[in-house]
Design a binder for these strands. Structure first.
Lengths: 352, 352
DNA sequence: TTGAAAGCGCTAACAG
DNA sequence: CTGTTAGCGCTTTCAA
């Protein structure tokens, strides 16, 4: 690698002091036009790029923020990242991306590294902030760090942490979806997918229960099958659901991945969607229009989650006091995977 | 934010010099056990984390690498990132992720920023390195930068740049896929998707042509429809293809996105897959098993691309001389979207 | 084993 | 308008 040149080299060649070079570099004080031009020429000639490390060391800001997330391979996260990156770039930040594969140990490692690297802020998604019961040490670690660097939690929480949060009202989303099925005449409704110790799963289940209760219905135990968030998971869960003696006429899924798995299982069972069974996803990821039938799902405004997270971070960094919590309203997106109630299999068996 | 504490504070409190603190921090020289313990205690007490900026400034290495890519939302890239990140972490690097939305200007901006931030290496995917004709200024910019920081190109090239490259043999992949269709008895084969000025598209088209030629066949112009890389693009292209007077019995797609679009269009036309039309994707992204029917596709070993890229970078950084080019062999993954030739629509119309 | 001191490359008073 | 100089927080000789 070529030896890198410094502000001193430029100063010497332009016959000025480093201060003056710094001034033209940052446009931080008036410089005589002629000397400025000389300096610019020298800079241009050598393709000089100031060393951001040196500057950051002094300024105590790095123009760098980080996103910690569990699985960049899950399409939900790239969408959030996309939104975040767009506004970050506008504001002059570059992004560290920290993929934790859902391991808390990796989260901790990254937390340490990011602190050392003096990032200006951290956006945290998934993992420990999504647990219904986050172990105190894990929680404490984040809270402690937040005393040194601004942190915002996206779609998650750390009880009593007082950290800034941006999240979708998932309860409302689940309620919306349930209402939709109810409106279509469904009364036999199931729920599948999602790890059980995860708040995103529990919140949805609770909301579904609540909505059903309004109608004097309940979520039967055999029709409640948490598990994972993956396509394969959804498929297996749905298979098990379809092998129950009585089947629901509609099922809500914890996310689009699971819903797609459910669609596959349903079709493999020779059933039609939505004629025999209605299926609802969650997230409105790009996948939801990639399958046949296109998924009825709940939109999370994923990009916006990212945008708002960066925006909030930016405000904190600049000493403002943005809202502690921003909650986004989800939206029901009705597509082709839901329809009117068929004659309930339950009824059939009752009748016969 | 709490005031951050430095190595001086530690030194003072432990009654030693900063040099000694540095020594225990880096285990870079023997330190008497007792003093080490005192120092460790003070460090622990204050949760002290050394400032990586200061260290990097001195050491001329940041433990940071960057990945520049066009669209993190396209599932191919997260897969590469996943592989890359895994080995990067092992080797102690953290990742900047630079999403360029396919804009060359953003690529240039990032190139500048990364140089300023003194990343230890850069992995470049898509965008300008994927053009059949990369404008010299764009190419030059990368080559110039590569004199200051190691760069490896993944699935792309910059003619005469002599840069390190890791890539899949896409020609072979396309040939494999074509052979597969030929073996199933197809002779009427089309190709859709991919921007025309893009090497990934041209390479595949050329390979398909070559393979067909071996069999005395040719790729008809009406059946060659480049365009975009998206689901929607694939759908429109396929629609147009299906409205041709004569239809192919099989179509190759530039990637899985396009293939999924093609599947949708086909089904919307009331045709069955693979009974009426066979469809082949490319990439073997997670999507390919999410659709019905599951896609026959060409696997690119996406994770491995990322792993090898980091590995290569790491070697360069450490003064070794890794291979200039590593080419990965693609693999045909036969699933449900391809089957025996139907009675060719062409034949029908000829017969009748 | 330990400390003193000289930077790494840049910015920001403070003088002039 | 411009130059001098003192750091930012750390590592690394060189001496002791």
């Amino acid at each position: 690698m070529k030896q890198t040149i410094t502000i001193y080299d430029i100063a010497k060649e332009a016959n000025v002091s480093v201060a003056t070079v710094s001034r033209v570099l940052n446009d931080t004080a008036p410089v005589k036009r002629s000397t400025r031009e000389i300096i610019m020429a020298v800079i241009e000639k050598h393709q000089f790029q100031p060393n951001a490390l040196a500057r950051s060391l002094l300024k105590k800001e790095t123009g760098t923020i980080a996103m910690i997330l569990p699985d960049i391979t899950n399409p939900f996260f790239p969408e959030v990242f996309w939104g975040a990156e767009n506004v970050a770039r506008e504001k002059g930040y570059t992004f560290f991306l920290c993929n934790t594969a859902g391991q808390y140990k990796r989260e901790s490692e990254y937390l340490g590294i990011l602190r050392e690297k003096r990032v200006d802020g951290i956006i945290f998604l998934g993992g420990r902030i999504n647990l219904t019961q986050c172990p105190p040490e894990l929680s404490q670690e984040v809270i402690e760090l937040s005393r040194h660097v601004p942190i915002v939690l996206v779609n998650g929480n750390l009880p009593k942490s007082g950290l800034h949060r941006i999240y979708t009202d998932e309860a409302e989303g689940a309620a919306l979806a349930t209402q939709h099925l109810l409106d279509l005449g469904h009364t036999d409704i199931g729920f599948i997918g999602g790890m059980e110790d995860t708040s995103t799963t529990q919140v949805k289940i609770k909301a579904v229960r609540g909505k059903l209760k309004e109608y004097g219905l309940k979520l039967r135990n055999e029709w409640l099958k948490p598990g994972e968030f993956s396509v394969q998971g959804g498929r297996e869960l749905m298979n098990r659901l379809l092998e129950e003696e009585h089947r629901p006429t509609a099922v809500l899924c914890v996310n689009d991945f699971t819903a797609i798995g459910a669609v596959k299982a349903t079709i493999e069972h020779g059933l039609r969607i939505p004629e025999d069974i209605s299926i609802v996803g969650f997230d409105d990821s790009p996948l939801s229009t990639a399958v046949i039938p296109e998924l009825t799902t709940v939109s999370q405004n994923t990009n916006e989650l990212g945008e708002l997270a960066v925006d909030t971070l930016h405000r904190i960094i600049n000493g403002k006091t943005p809202r502690k919590q921003i909650v986004l309203k989800p939206q029901l997106i009705v597509r082709k995977s839901t329809g009117q109630t068929p004659i309930s299999p339950l009824q059939i068996s009752v009748d016969s």
